[in-house]
């Protein structure tokens, strides 16, 4: 098992507000990791730190044994942001072609319809993005993150804006990625789905890890939702407590 991502004692503050405090994580190849937490817990801050979109105050993050300020560390990753966006006057197909080419996929051989069918939006292939609904745009974003067949896929709130069919589609995709031994890091609030998909879970609150470990162990005695609620609504664990 290869370690793909290793973050040690990462701290990041925005002015007086500490978004992450001594955050550590290790993700191995083939892991499906759920990063959970209430709004403002630091989940998106961590994802942005690992992609080099924000700088960290202290600590280190290595991706594929390279420091994150080395752009080569991002060669094998695909990223779905919290709010997927692209030029509104581009069509769905144009958008997929752009992502396909940027992931160095052979655009002449890429079956674009296949990726759209996975997310039930194959009929929209020639539609301009400005005509898509929020949910349709989100599905397109997921398709774009899959099209390069990257090894490590980071999904920030992938269920956002999706209807129940869309949520099922994404869940099936995650299971498919798991079967293909891909590595996935998912930020989400949808605890019930995360409980079914993820192998490992990290629960963040106010930038501090409240609990982390294998999903099967954390949910041994109670549902993930109850564990989560107990941790978030109970006394906040400060750094150093187990």
């Amino acid at each position: 098992m290869t370690t793909i991502l290793k973050a040690n004692d990462v701290t990041k503050s925005y002015g007086d507000y500490t978004a992450l405090k001594n955050f550590s994580i290790e993700i191995n190849s083939g892991d499906i990791v759920a990063l959970l937490g209430p709004n403002g817990a630091g989940k998106t801050t961590f994802v942005k730190s690992l992609l080099g979109l924000v700088s960290i105050d202290s600590g280190s993050i290595n991706l594929y044994d390279l420091p994150i300020n080395d752009s080569r560390s991002r060669r094998k990753i695909a990223y779905l942001p919290e709010k997927f966006n692209f030029y509104s006057y581009f069509t769905v197909l144009d958008t997929l072609k752009f992502y396909s080419s940027m992931y160095n996929a052979d655009s002449t051989k890429t079956d674009y319809k296949y990726f759209l069918e996975m997310l039930s939006i194959e009929d929209l292939i020639n539609k301009k993005l400005k005509t898509l609904s929020k949910g349709q745009l989100q599905r397109l974003g997921i398709a774009c993150s899959l099209i390069g067949d990257q090894d490590f896929i980071i999904l920030d709130e992938p269920f956002s804006g999706l209807d129940p069919i869309g949520i099922k589609d994404v869940k099936d995709i995650c299971m498919k990625l798991k079967a293909e031994n891909k590595t996935v890091l998912i930020n989400s609030h949808i605890l019930a789905e995360m409980e079914k998909i993820a192998d490992k879970v990290i629960i963040l609150n106010k930038g501090i890890v409240q609990k982390s470990g294998l999903m099967t162990e954390i949910t041994k005695d109670e549902a993930l939702e109850d564990v989560f609620y107990g941790l978030i609504k109970g006394p906040v664990r400060t750094e150093g407590e187990s």
Binding site: L51, L53, S71, P81, K83, N85, M102
Partner: peptide, 21 residues
């Protein structure tokens, strides 16, 4: 500017490109 305003910059910079590139 259009990339920054639309938050598309997050996606583009997630590719293995340097910011200067």
């Amino acid at each position: 500017k259009s990339d920054v305003d639309s938050s598309l910059i997050n996606q583009v910079l997630s590719f293995p490109l340097t910011r200067f590139g």
